[in-house]
Design a protein around this nucleic acid. Structure first.
Lengths: 233, 233
DNA sequence: CTCCCCCAACCTGTCAGACAGGTTTTGCTT
DNA sequence: AAGCAAAACCTGTCTGACAGGTTGGGGGAG
């Protein structure tokens, strides 16, 4: 019954299921075998198959739903977001390090967005910047439009890896954004922050990557300064 | 016994355990309660707690080991690496998109590395570049030194998020690297590729970020061209 | 002949209990 | 006081059971 213990039955099952997906070229939405069938094929109990499924679902490699069969999943930032948050909460990553990465990739994103955006995307980006301006009195709402703005830019870059990364930082950004906002006490500072976004949207709409990058850099310079003022070492 | 079904018992348990880590400020290495205790506290079966543990372990938020209690884990690129590979295998991400991201972050990494590297790190980076040169006849070995070289640069950037990202791309790079190598058929092309790394290592050791960035850009220009030649659309 | 509804078969979510190892703690012996 | 061995504890896996969600197909109504 029991063969050589390579590592753990669950680990082996994860490998077998991954291989199954790869070898059959399964695409997102395609169905996987049922737990019962896999447990028979792999000669392990349903418990083991279930734990393997859970592991893959945690990484968003597959998707589970009650009653239905497991399916191959679309890439999604949920898992990475949790991992990043965990890193920050356990002092393995700090906010400045995240800002450095965001600055690096977002300057690239905005360049690509200015070059590749469709007209619909340009309109959406302009719209979101406009909504930011309209939400100056409601920080929580403003933050959501801000996040949506950067997500839309990533989308317009036409590179799903950038979307994935921006999404991954969204969770932790949501927890630190208010800190930066509070340190922009004057109306002028707040107007500037929002205006920078509006101008950036216009630069992207005008297909002017250089201008867009300049504004993105300005935005991050300003944000990092705000965080420092807030006492984040 | 059964209260309102928020979503799923396992989902709730994952939340409860995450909260436990956060609220008690647990750090990597700290122990979590046993499965039996958690199942009693959360009023669920051990099955549910185990599946929650597996999910968190898949995201490398906690670490499991037989006999021992679960512990809080250090951030690690294993899970992200699998997610990226899954994205590529299911045609949701292509190699060029990954190269664009790598180029973007590695030019930043090499700048930071040139500024922040310790003398030990500089020596290690020079050593790895030297090993690449010595492995010109053994592609598999050369690839490993190449990967180690870029990992060492990320390390020297002193930003764990860059290390995490570089590590995440390593799995898929390992699967595509040989393709690029084969399209450098002449000895001159291969020498150039390795020499670029040696020069880059020297620039980092000399604390010359501008030169280092220039070489990194050159390297990626060349790599992307190689991939295109290999017929990667 | 077509359409719709409902049921049977299938599938996942959760529980309880059991047992084989690996790990830690305790307490006794020397 | 140091060291060792047994007891207590813990995780990995299996089995069997049942509630509830999902789906395809067959039969009846129109």
């Amino acid at each position: 019954m029991d063969q050589i213990h390579s590592a753990s039955l669950v680990g082996d099952a994860i490998g077998a299921i991954s291989r199954h997906i790869r070898e059959r070229y399964l695409m997102p939405g395609d169905k996987l075998p049922s737990e019962a069938l896999l447990s028979k094929e792999l000669n392990v109990s349903r418990t083991v198959v279930r734990e393997a499924f859970r592991s893959l679902a945690a990484m968003r490699i597959i998707e589970l739903a009650t009653g239905k069969r497991a399916t191959v999943a679309q890439i999604d930032h949920g898992a990475m977001s949790l991992m990043i948050e965990h890193g920050v909460h356990t002092d393995q990553i700090n906010i400045h390090q995240i800002y450095d990465v965001r600055r690096t990739i977002e300057t690239r994103i905005v360049t690509l967005a200015a070059i590749r955006r469709t007209d619909e995307e340009a309109a959406e980006i302009l719209h979101l910047a406009g909504q930011m301006k309209a939400s100056l009195g409601d920080p929580a709402q403003l933050m959501e439009y801000d996040l949506a703005f950067h997500t839309a830019l990533a989308q317009a870059s036409r590179n799903p890896v950038y979307s994935l990364l921006i999404g991954s930082f969204q969770g932790i950004t949501r927890q630190t954004w208010p800190m930066g906002w509070k340190t922009r006490p004057t109306q002028a500072a707040r107007d500037l922050m929002v205006q920078t976004h509006v101008d950036m949207a216009r630069a992207v709409a005008a297909s002017d990557p250089l201008k867009a990058v300049e504004l993105m850099s300005l935005h991050f310079d300003e944000s990092v300064r705000a965080l420092l003022t807030a006492g984040m070492s």
